[in-house]
Design a protein around this nucleic acid. Structure first.
Lengths: 344, 344
DNA sequence: GTGAAAGCGCTAACAC
DNA sequence: GTGTTAGCGCTTTCAC
């Protein structure tokens, strides 16, 4: 805070060399700025020797063209915003990563905003992103329940990931919940299970409800009936353990359990094992999520449905790029998951 | 791709209203752009009525001032870059979140870049961030081993988080590995354990080595000796289970285990429980990480050392803001962790 | 082939 | 109190 302090200037300033502008490059190469610009961008018709000289000058000066100046001119910033409600949690992370994959290909950089599920924060972030003239926005949720659109009549395209927009005219990408259930049932049936139960998360979650009804349907497609009703509870290991204990009491002959999440499945395998069942011989278990730390550490390691979150992010990124390029694809895009077979 | 397609224009374009500029606002309010600017920014001396009129016009036009134009003028973009080598993994997530907390207070937005531990990608991202004229950069690692500086003589300040820069003149924030070990030992001793062993990750990790030696020291501070040598292995549950099995064979009377990670601790508790030990009565276990999904689901739930990753991110953000403001604090900043007591 | 000049949207200095 | 003007760093006509 003491500007006059003679010590501070040399010792604490960590070398902030003045940045070279295109004018500096032009001067050093002995050409005009216009020429330098053309040389660097491969535009216009220049003598190869001039081009080389400019390039050399740029190199020596470590010239990094300012995209902010360019943006002002072109109206494009080559940035997008990602607003996640998930506090960088388990769901938004693979989505972000997938989105970055797709966007990186388009030379875009992403601003990350965490709304913490607070609509106020969300609107705040939206406004800041718009002020920064992002070319587009991805809104990533952590549940598959539809959500209200983040805004209407926005000046840039928006793509919703995982949690689709309630407005069907918006662009949304989400997971295939029914498909996930079918993959799980398919696997259990194929491995000889006939008395299959379903333990899942809260009934208030659309994904839990959809998976449950798809499970019943898929079973009946094989001439089978779900053992008991679906067990709705929480997305926790404790619930998986508890539900399995109850389940065994009511239906000791169960030979397959489809769990709505890997954590539930892990709790289920623990409880089954500790009740004396031999896994996977006597009971087969399938989870959902393919969450490494849970699925791989379980005993036995979990066979599970990967919902393809990263793929959802990638699709969202691609759809956003397309929309930015003027070819939006409105509607709900469903990404298929896949089964990861381990030992359970 | 077909520009002439008459359908595409009205139906597929999702309402991209022309953005109002300050000139539009000025026109609508019947003032000049300069006046409008002053009105909106609270600068200069204007009649209150004029100010109100301009504000109203801005509101009606949904005017969102372009930060890119402003940046060009002021040289500040109010953006920072976060380069993480962790693919948004377990370590970088809380760090990012903490950083966003601190930066958000400074009205900054963060570009997220995933280097995937690839120096080429890292340099690529660095260049793109510099082109975008970020005001500063945070480099987040996933290990506490020192890393080479990302560049020399950069035009913006850089703060390293978790993985400090090998150059001590750089600004780095990292965890207190020795302190973590002391907290764990302290707890075990306080709860009456006297025969304490240590199971941890690979010897190639600085954090494993530092915790191990600090553990030995802390024990000797209590007149105790580590039971056996530290068990170096992997950061997995399987390693925790295996090591405990061996440990019990060699030292059946062990009554406390400090594990270098929650996953190891979880494996350890499982193996202990299954060997017939009553937890936490006969053996106390302490982990490191406070990783919710692991620590809370363990049986019993794990007592563990939280390294304060989010706090590291917050400090990194603060230090970066300070450096941007011209008061950098070079050197290694160590953030203390804290013990989270659960039942193990 | 190359240079000169206009202008992207905004702010700040200076007129009036 | 308010308007006018220059200019941030770059690209892009259009002269020459």
């Amino acid at each position: 805070m003491n500007d006059a302090d003679p010590r501070s200037t040399p010792s604490t300033t960590p070398a902030s060399p003045r940045r070279a502008g295109i004018a500096d490059v032009a001067a050093r190469a002995g050409v005009s700025v216009g020429t330098a610009s053309k040389a660097l961008n491969g535009r216009g018709t220049l003598k190869e020797e001039t081009r080389a000289r400019v390039r050399a000058a740029a190199q020596e000066l470590e010239f990094a063209p300012s995209t902010v100046a360019r943006s002002l001119l072109t109206g494009r910033t080559f940035t997008v915003g990602i607003i996640t409600s998930d506090s960088y949690g388990r769901f938004s992370i693979p989505i972000m990563r997938g989105a970055e994959d797709a966007l990186g290909l388009g030379e875009m950089l992403a601003f990350l905003c965490d709304s913490r599920d607070d609509p106020i924060r969300e609107q705040h972030h939206l406004r800041r992103l718009l002020e920064r003239r992002v070319d587009g926005i991805i809104v990533a949720g952590r549940r598959t329940d539809a959500r209200p659109p983040i805004g209407t009549n926005l000046p840039v395209p928006v793509v919703y990931a995982l949690a689709p927009s309630a407005d069907e005219a918006d662009i949304s990408v989400t997971s295939d919940e029914g498909g996930a259930a079918r993959l799980a049932v398919e696997h259990l049936v194929r491995t000889g299970r006939r008395r299959i139960a379903h333990i899942t998360g809260p009934h208030s979650h659309a994904s839990a409800r959809e998976r449950a009804s798809a499970t019943v349907e898929a079973l009946s497609g094989h001439g089978l009936e779900l053992v008991g009703d679906p067990w709705f509870g929480g997305w926790t290991e404790a619930w998986g353990r508890f539900a399995v204990t109850q389940l065994l009491r009511a239906h000791p002959d169960v030979d397959g359990v489809f769990c709505g999440a890997d954590v539930i499945a892990r709790g289920a395998t623990d409880a089954l094992r500790e009740s004396g069942a031999s896994l996977p011989l006597e009971v087969g278990v399938v989870g959902v999520d393919n969450w490494g730390v849970v699925a791989e550490a379980a005993r036995p390691p979990l066979t599970t449905v990967d919902l393809g979150l990263q793929e959802i992010g990638r699709r969202a990124g691609e759809l956003l790029l397309a929309a930015i390029d003027g070819t939006p694809a409105p509607g709900l895009h469903v990404v298929a998951g896949h089964l990861v077979v381990r030992e359970s």
